[in-house]
Nucleic acid binder design. Structure first.
Lengths: 323, 323
DNA sequence: AACAATATGTCAACCGGTTGACATATGAAA
DNA sequence: TTTCATATGTCAACCGGTTGACATATTGTT
């Protein structure tokens, strides 16, 4: 059986309380005793039972992360940073891949509460949800409005959308189309679209947005319906990549006949598709801010917290928008 | 304060034991009582405290995952599947990004034990380690030998290496170079290299392997030292992508002058770089097998378990190896 | 010598849920 | 009527670590 404090105490020849005191640096402890206790712990291969500890102190140092999927390089990278920063602060991370499914999300939310997490960071779906408003449980949204009371961290989507659209216009594009994910979700990312439409109009151009729900069928359709398209702003790099592929198949030369810009600029995209112009999200900074806001909520309970944090992104010009 | 069983009992007008019985479906429970209890739980917004429960039943339903980073699309996708399958079995997942650093890995291992995880799946570093041999704690390695006693799941690396090398040879390449990660680590992935060298020799060709530790400096060097190279087998798609980029910069036409094949074939690579030939790893199957082996160890304690599981991968021919 | 500060021990309550032992009550079957 | 399956309650121990109260030594200081 796993050794417990009592066993350590016996081996070290001290009382269980003393061991606990050593473990938690409380009260007076002699240097000798400290050493004896540590030796005993080593000898027995003792690991303090955090479950028992958590039960008593009513804190688990667990943070729940709910995101669509680590498969997606954007979330993969974001989650990497979240976990990393959390770890430096002594927090551990429970991973939940909701896959954009409401039922899964609800189950995870339920599970996280049963497991007494100290907080939740979510960048998943929403909709009817006031489900995230949990009394005494700090929550932070990433690129997702979870409720009117829950703080959100996101990149400056409007500015990003503007940068992308303006770049295409500057490069001489006249027929610029925007493609984005399903906008039934009310996310800050929709501001990319809003910026696109604003900038287009400001330049006497007609905005046209395609909403991609599922397949690249939409992209095919886009090309068929708009033979004169000369600029495409995709709301993420993966979609942009599909666009490029489709253009190649139709012998549309990029960037001569068509200029393409994506969004996200993850490490992986930069490596695999370095020629793609994109608006790079400040992923690490988003993660830092999200954790900071979460921890702040956990520490000073009902202090007022910034409800919306917007971090600027960065335009990366690649070959897909021309020299 | 959060409601506890006692509160539920009061509201439902029953005893705490009865509530526990309802919760765990033990003993006799009348339909009426069951409903009353559920209503009370709903009314109070009661969530059973898993921490308390875990303490008593000595099982947390937690699985620790130690991998270099979710940023990498291969691990991202693998971890997605691991979490997913674990969830269907009622297990939760503690995520650890070790970043290939021994110190971090050790800390995580320590942390997971303190948190009483039921098992660990690791695909990280190793080296001096017998550290993973933890009494009574099931462990499974993914593409990593963790110890002589710990089961490993991996794709058929030898076969994959063979497929890749053979393809290049079939396509007429004579000067084929292999690039892989640092092989100081003893991993099943080294079999890709072994296969490459075997096949080369079997075809009266001279194998030449470059070991990439850090940068694409090595790739530059490779091109400079081997102007006649006409085939490159990279041990992962990200490296292959760098090779392609470097070749473009040197105006080496792919596939005419140089054929390139990678390894992994993640969803992300397939989307972003569909033209890349690669050996696709059976990521989902690896995840399934890993969980299966872990759960088997947890269930029938010291049943003999398969020490090495090898799952075949799949050759994907893209344009980078020619028509 | 008196008084602190330091060092350690004993003991019990507590965190929230689980479980087994045992008591009791009801209704139905034998 | 007896007996049994069903239904629920009471009670206490337990999981492993934490904490406060209190006792007792041993130092060192003044």
């Amino acid at each position: 059986m796993k050794p417990k404090i009592e066993d350590v105490a016996k081996v070290a020849g001290v009382s269980p309380t003393t061991v606990s005191r050593v473990l938690n640096n409380r009260g007076y402890i002699g240097e000798n005793t400290r050493i004896k206790v540590h030796k005993a712990m080593e000898q027995l291969n003792y690991y303090p039972n955090e479950v028992a500890r958590s039960l008593f102190i009513k804190k688990t140092f667990l943070i729940g992360l709910i995101f669509p999927t680590t498969s997606n390089p954007f979330y993969g990278q974001l989650i990497f940073h979240l976990e990393n920063i959390a770890a430096t602060l002594g927090y551990k991370v429970l991973l939940c891949n909701s896959q954009g499914r409401e039922d899964k999300e609800k189950n995870y939310l339920n599970m996280l509460q049963r497991n007494q997490v100290d907080g939740i960071i979510a960048g998943a779906h929403n909709k009817g949800i006031e489900e995230y408003e949990i009394p005494n449980l700090p929550v932070v949204g990433v690129d997702r409005y979870l409720s009117s009371k829950i703080p959100v961290v996101s990149s400056d989507n409007y500015h990003g959308g503007k940068l992308a659209t303006q770049l295409l216009i500057n490069k001489g594009c006249k027929n610029i189309i925007h493609i984005n994910g399903p906008i039934s979700l009310e996310t800050p990312a929709n501001l990319r679209r809003k910026a696109y439409e604003d900038i287009m109009r400001a330049n006497q151009l007609t905005p046209l947005t395609y909403e991609i729900d599922d397949h690249f069928k939409i992209i095919k359709q886009l090309f068929e319906e708009n033979p004169r398209v000369d600029g495409i702003f995709a709301s993420d790099d993966l979609i942009a990549s599909q666009v490029i592929r489709q253009a190649k198949e139709r012998n549309i030369d990029i960037p001569t006949d068509l200029k393409v810009i994506g969004y996200d600029g993850t490490e992986t995209t930069r490596l695999l598709l370095p020629e793609l112009s994109t608006v790079q999200q400040p992923i690490k900074e988003i993660a830092e801010k999200a954790i900071e806001l979460l921890v702040k909520q956990m520490d000073d309970k009902d202090d007022a917290i910034q409800l919306e944090t917007i971090i600027p992104g960065k335009l990366i010009e690649g070959e897909t928008t021309g020299g």
